[in-house]
Design a protein around this nucleic acid. Structure first.
Lengths: 253, 253
DNA sequence: GCCATTTGCTGACCCAGATCAAGGATTTCC
DNA sequence: GGAAATCCTTGATCTGGGTCAGCAAATGGC
C-alpha cells in the first residue's frame, strides 16, 4: 500500500491516481465515468506519511478537508474537561475522516496516527463544488455520511446496552468486517491500537479488556499473540454480539 | 404550532409554506432566495398528524423521505434480537428524522410519535435533485448530516464515560438547549418521554433515572412535577456535565 | 364512576466491572 | 545494547447501578 503511494507521489503522471488506487472501490464506491474520476483525482492531494503519534488535525482547528486513509490507522478523540482523551473512532484504509467538521467549520475532534499512516487530503470546498457537477458523487457523499450516522447509532447501542464480553466481541467482529471489505483476512489481523485505547473506545477499563481477551482465548473463541488476533469461532462470537448483527442484517435486506 | 399547521394545510395558498413556517430558520437555516424557498416548498408534503404511539416509518421499510418535525416529539429505535427496543434518539420540532436511511435505502430504525405529532415529508430524491440546482441547499444538507455525526459522537462519550448523574444532567441540558434554540424556555419544559424511555436512551434502569431526578430535586438543581421540569441551578448542572459542555464550546468557537 | 393498566417512586440486595496494586513483557530511544 | 518508559496481565477488593419487590399515583377504556 505504501509502495503504491510512494510511486504515485514521486512519478510525474499526476492524472487518474484514484483510478489506479486499490482503494478506489471502497473510498468512494461509485460508478464514476473516467473523466469524472480524473476531475476528482485532480482535487486530491496525496500527503506525506504521518508517523505514529502525529496529528492529522486537532480539535478546534479550522475545517477545510476530509481525508481518506490510504494505509495505516488513525484514531479520532476529544479531550475532556479533566484532560483525558475519549476516543470516538478508529479509521482503517479507505475510510473517510473529518466529516464531522462540516457543520461547525472546525474539527470537533482530533485525529492522530496509531502507526505510520498515509492519507489523501480532499479539500471539502472543492469536493462540494465538484459534487454539483457530478450527481453520483454528491449522492455518494450523502451515502457515506448517512452510513456514518447509522454506524454511530449502532455504537450507541453497544455502549448503552452491552456488557464487557459483548462489547469486545462486537469490536473484534467489526474490525474483521472492515478488513474483509478491503480484501484482507477477516479471521486474522493485527490490532494497531493498544488495549488501553480499546478500553477507552468501548467504555471499559484496560484490565477488563485484557481479562475478556484472555478469557476468549481460553474458551477458544480467538487466538491472541500480543497485537495479532485470530478469530477462531465466528459463530460463537456472533452469538455473543447478538443485537448488532441482527440490526446489521435488517439494515441490508 | 399545530394551529399554524392546520391553517397551512387547509387553506389553498400552497406556495411558500416554508417561508411562513416558524421553524424555517431552524429546519434548514439558510439564506435561500425566495424563489428557492418556493421550489423547496413545492416538494414538501405536509402530512396529517400522527397520534401518540403511531409509527412514522418502521425499521426495514424502504427509505424514500426524510421528515422535519413541525410539532410534537418522535423517538427512533431499534428492536434488538431479544425483542426489546433500544432508543437511538428523540426528535423535537424543526429537527430532521430519517437521514440514516440514505445509505442502505431502508430505514435502519423505526420512528414513533411520543405524543400527537405533525411532520413535513421531504421526498429525498426530490431534495437531492433540487440540491443540485441550489448549492446552498446542498451545503445545508451536508451541514445537517455533519452536525448529526458530531452530536452522536457526543452521545457516545456520554454513554461510554459518564455516570448516572452526568448522563441525566446532560440529557436535561441537551433538551434545554434544543428548546431554547427554537424559542421556548430553556429553563422550564415538559418531558414528552417516560422515565423508562429516558433510561433506555441513556443506558440506565428506570429506577436509576427516577432516583437521580429525585436527588437533583432534593439538592435544588431542578424542580420536578411529573413530566414538567424546571432547571433551577444551571451552573451546577453544567458542572456535572463537564465534558460535553466543553466540547460544545470548542465546537462553536 | 370504576376497575385495569401503565407509570413513577423507594427500599433491600447483589453483581459486573472499576479501582488498586504489583510483576512481567515490549517498545522506545539514547 | 541497555535503561526507561510504556503496555499487558493477573489478583484482591470495592462500589455504582442493576434487579427485584411493593406500593402510590396517573391514565385510559367501558
Amino acid at each position: 500500500m505504501s509502495l503504491t503511494h510512494t510511486q504515485s507521489r514521486f512519478n510525474s503522471t499526476l492524472t487518474s491516481q484514484c483510478q489506479n488506487c486499490s482503494l478506489s472501490a471502497l473510498c468512494l464506491p461509485i460508478a464514476l465515468a473516467d473523466e469524472d474520476i480524473n476531475k476528482l483525482d485532480q482535487i486530491i492531494e496525496r500527503k506525506k506519511p504521518l508517523k505514529k503519534g502525529e496529528f492529522l488535525f486537532r480539535q478546534g482547528e479550522a475545517f477545510d478537508s476530509v481525508y481518506a486513509v490510504r494505509s495505516g490507522t488513525l484514531k479520532t478523540f476529544n479531550i475532556t474537561s479533566v484532560g483525558e482523551e475519549q476516543i470516538t473512532g478508529f479509521y482503517c484504509p479507505s475510510e473517510l475522516v473529518g466529516l464531522s467538521g462540516i457543520d461547525s467549520s472546525v474539527y470537533p475532534v482530533s485525529a492522530k496516527a496509531l502507526e505510520t499512516t498515509t492519507v489523501c487530503e480532499i479539500p471539502f470546498s472543492h469536493l462540494e463544488e465538484l459534487s454539483s457537477h457530478i450527481p453520483s458523487l454528491k449522492h455518494q457523499i450523502f451515502k457515506v455520511m448517512s452510513r456514518k450516522i447509522s454506524d454511530d447509532q449502532q455504537m450507541m447501542v453497544l455502549l448503552g446496552k452491552k456488557n464487557a464480553d459483548e462489547k469486545v466481541a462486537s469490536f473484534l467482529l467489526n474490525l474483521s468486517n472492515r478488513f474483509k471489505k478491503r480484501g484482507y483476512s477477516a479471521s486474522s489481523f493485527r490490532l494497531s491500537m493498544s488495549r488501553g485505547e480499546i478500553g477507552n473506545y468501548l467504555g471499559l477499563a484496560v484490565e477488563t479488556v485484557s481479562r475478556v481477551i484472555t478469557r476468549f482465548q481460553k474458551n477458544e473463541l480467538i487466538h491472541v499473540d500480543g497485537k495479532e488476533i485470530e478469530i477462531i469461532d465466528f459463530p460463537e462470537m456472533q452469538k455473543l454480539v447478538g443485537v448488532a448483527s441482527d440490526c446489521g442484517k435488517i439494515a441490508h435486506i
